[in-house]
């Protein structure tokens, strides 16, 4: 009796084996709904948490980028007469990246100050004019990098001037965003490691339950790849389920917190719109669930098969 007739071709047999493993794996999940739902819930929570934090951070970043704010650099120059001011203004205007230059002489500044006081006579007590001349520079580009670059060019051009940029808070917000993103990455990495371990333990215990079947299958000529396959599909299914559940949680989280978060931002005078996640975020969550599910199952089944 020779093996032969009726057996599928190599590729077909392989594909059939995969389809069969996926079907069995799916049935195994359906047969143990409690366990499957708990796993999916755990994965969903773990995936949704960093995704939600990222969404908050991303909206905050969008806020800093979206605010219609024209950055200005003010240069304060002591003891500068009208000629020197005109000369400095001309040199600054010639610099690259400058959109607009507005000089204000010391006398002019004092007049403006005097006009703003309720009792201008108060200034008559002063001896001379203590105010510096001011050159206000508007950079052509609004990014913090461009503003900072222009500031350093101005410092080189006029080392004696004191420079103050009102764009500083954008830079602070960006630094906070970068720090937040780093913290988030570390947290997400740890959570991903956690998921992988959970899935790995689940896959290993599932294979241990199939110990006798595995022993018989090995005697009948099953490869480790064959024995591992249902676990890998199991990991993919749980990962996919976790990804879908995390999307639901994320959506619910945004809806539930949208109003208070926007109100809190408005209290600081920030026009934050807490937007729902884009399709890209959904795809990333599903993809992450699938990849982590596969890795966890691969690690767990590998360890169990080596025992």
């Amino acid at each position: 009796m020779k093996d032969g007739g009726g057996r599928a071709g190599c590729l077909e047999a392989w594909l059939y084996n995969h389809a069969d493993a996926a079907r069995r794996s799916f049935r195994r999940r359906v047969d143990a709904p409690g366990q499957t739902l708990i796993m999916i819930a755990v994965l969903g929570f773990i995936l949704a948490l960093p995704a939600y934090l990222w969404l908050l951070l991303d909206n905050a970043r969008a806020l800093s980028a979206g605010i219609d704010h024209e950055p200005r650099i003010a240069l304060y120059l002591d003891d500068t007469d009208a000629d020197a001011l005109a000369d400095a203004t001309a040199r600054i205007t010639a610099l690259p990246g400058v959109a607009q230059v507005t000089p204000t002489g010391a006398d002019e500044a004092l007049d403006e100050y005097r006009a703003s006081l309720p009792d201008p006579a108060l200034l008559d007590w002063l001896e001379g004019n203590p105010l510096p001349a001011i050159i206000e520079v508007v950079p052509r580009e609004r990014t913090p990098e461009a503003v900072a670059a222009l500031e350093s060019r101005l410092a080189m051009l006029l080392p004696e001037a004191v420079s103050v940029s009102d764009h500083e808070w954008v830079r602070q917000l960006q630094a906070l965003h970068a720090a937040g993103l780093r913290v988030l990455l570390v947290v997400a990495g740890l959570l991903a490691l956690g998921i992988t371990l959970i899935l790995s333990v689940a896959a290993a215990s599932e294979l241990r339950e199939r110990r006798e079947e595995i022993a018989i299958s090995r005697i009948s000529g099953a490869t480790d790849r064959f024995l591992r396959r249902p676990s890998l599909y199991g990991g993919l299914l749980l990962g996919l389920g976790g990804g879908v559940f995390s999307l639901i949680l994320l959506g619910a989280g945004v809806i539930l917190t949208q109003a208070p978060v926007e109100a809190a931002a408005a209290a600081f005078g920030l026009p934050l719109v807490f937007a729902a996640p884009e399709a890209r975020v959904g795809l990333i969550l599903l993809g992450t669930g699938l990849v982590l599910g596969w890795i966890g199952a691969r690690l767990g089944s590998g360890a169990a098969l080596r025992e």
């Binding site: 599928a8 392989w14 059939y16 069969d20 006798e212 022993a215 299958s217 000529g221 064959f226």
Partner: peptide, 23 residues
């Protein structure tokens, strides 16, 4: 060494599953 979690036909089919026979 039969597997008691499945019926007789599934026990007998095990080597065929490994070989990739269609159902």
């Amino acid at each position: 060494r039969l597997l008691f979690d499945r019926p007789v036909h599934a026990n007998v089919a095990l080597p065929l599953e490994i070989l990739g026979y269609r159902r």
